[in-house]
Design a protein around this nucleic acid. Structure first.
Lengths: 180, 180, 180, 180
DNA sequence: AATGAATGAGCGTTCATTCAT
DNA sequence: AATGAATGAACGCTCATTCAT
């Protein structure tokens, strides 16, 4: 599964062949089919697992423990950073596969659950009068789009990661969506 | 070429077959090979043309005509919006193909030129003390990432486009990168 | 299609690979797929064509032109002999594939039509009081079973074909089903 | 071995996979290879056993105990009926596999022995001046062909089996080969 | 210049066979 | 002795590319 995520993230679903996955995983090609019905089932299983892990990371922080929106944002942002740092390929895999034509209903559902979780936070912030009154999807897109592009640059080495940088970026993202 | 961009944008490079492009373009499959050496040459030509058009759109606005950074940002943002509105598929095509394994040196170069153009603006803004002192690539990523995610949502109909929305989003993006 | 019939007849559906058909037909493997959606479509098309040709041969003799059952049997038997002689492989192909799990509805239907045609003749003979009052299917099975086994032996060279032999066999088959 | 015969009879040699046989037999796939060198050895062992059982059934009736050919035919026919009734799948298995490309020399030999046994009877009948003076193989083909087609129809339920029917069919088969 | 039938390399997948447990 | 996970050769099939028309 690691080999598959890596290759899918690097080259995309269609350009990743089952034999290549098998090679990288150092197993026979047929072995993969003992665990996954086919290539599509494999990519869906991986996608669901990645999102699940990401979602669990969010939920385990219990963002409802504080009502301060800025504080909540800080916590959420750091979950994202943690995930991005420890699961570089997973994040990239999610980014590049979340709208693939091969995703099944379950994958789409869990991805929607993920977006809904983020939406909840945004909605709460808007109710508190702290966040812009734009559509929640738009605010999510702003933060998530910025974040994922940024970590792509970090992954390929264009930008050097550092605590200061991440703090500043958090501030930028916060400034993007808060009311001025 | 229109047919090719459409299909590449919709399904990705690897899932788009040359016969399908030929069908959509209402020509024979062989005809495509009179104009492009192979599928890779085709996608590169398309990519270069798209970026070139985008870049020209930016350059034709002569952003150097004013020194006010906010004003420049406004102009640039509206070039992006115009491009996104009039070339929905091109923007999506760029987004999904800009880090493809099939891009040749020239494509990578022109994409770099495009990023460098944006970088120039950022750099100028930082010199003027108006923009955050983060790496220019990071600031670009924030704005561009937010922007492209947003227009993806608009393209697939999740968000309804409107002048007010776009103005607000411009403000959000500006808030993300300016100094507070 | 000739190559395919030959190989299917010789080795059976499952043991006949598309590459082998292509080799025998001296075409590329992909070429077959320009004319048939898949291997199953190929075997069905062949089957339907074979039965159709057989059925047409029967119908063109206008067996209704005489009411003498023995005379009709003579005509029908000679159609079978003609077909068997001129389409050795087709007959074998029909025999070995008529109850295959890969046959589609249309193939089953046309084979049923073929049996129904023979049944008509039998039924007529029974009405005339000339043929045994066994189920028509049984009488067909007797004649057709005997006939096809016989021609199998002829095909593989165990028995030498001759006019006298065939006349005698016709007599045997007739004796099998007529009333004594 | 029962599981294997069933599956071979139902779907044919090539369409029957070793794992499916193992499943049906409720053993591990590897276990089969402790008893048979490979799939081909398995099908040959089964074939030889089936023919052997069939042949033994014939021989145990001691057809030489009477010299009356019609009486002998009656006995032989009933051995065939008994076998067909008690070993439906075996008969079908023999029918569909007796000219398979996977049969080894021993299988072909024992099948030949089986035919030779029938031939003996025919030859005796011809000597007695009771049976047609056609090639013995042809007479066997007529009776065996008719018989096996008939039991196929009985197996799949097209014809309802009954003592009267079988008696009539015996008479038909006898009429087919006796001298008139 | 344009075509599309033909090609065959390479895909996703299956399954006879092996072998560590 | 029995297992079933693992294997990889070979299947059915697709499609980028060629070339005779």
């Amino acid at each position: 599964m690691n080999a598959a995520i890596l290759l899918f993230a690097e080259r995309g679903y269609d350009a990743t062949t089952v034999p290549k996955i098998a090679d990288k995983a150092q197993v026979g090609a047929g072995t993969i089919y003992r665990y996954f019905e086919n290539k599509e089932a494999l990519v869906n299983a991986l996608f669901q697992e990645c999102i699940h892990k990401f979602l669990e990371a969010f939920k385990s922080t219990k963002p409802e423990s504080t009502t301060d929106v800025r504080q909540q944002f800080h916590v959420l942002f750091h979950v994202m950073v943690d995930y991005a740092e420890n699961n570089t390929h997973e994040l990239h895999f999610i980014d590049t596969h979340c709208s693939g034509h091969y995703l099944d209903e379950k994958s789409k559902q869990i991805f929607q659950d993920f977006l809904d979780f983020l939406k909840n936070f945004i909605e709460h912030g808007k109710e508190q009068g702290v966040l812009c009154l734009l559509p929640s999807d738009a605010l999510i897109a702003i933060v998530y789009g910025a974040f994922s592009h940024l970590f792509k640059l970090i992954r390929i080495g264009v930008i050097q990661e550092s605590t200061e940088l991440l703090d500043s970026i958090e501030e930028c993202c916060w400034n993007a969506i808060r009311i001025h």
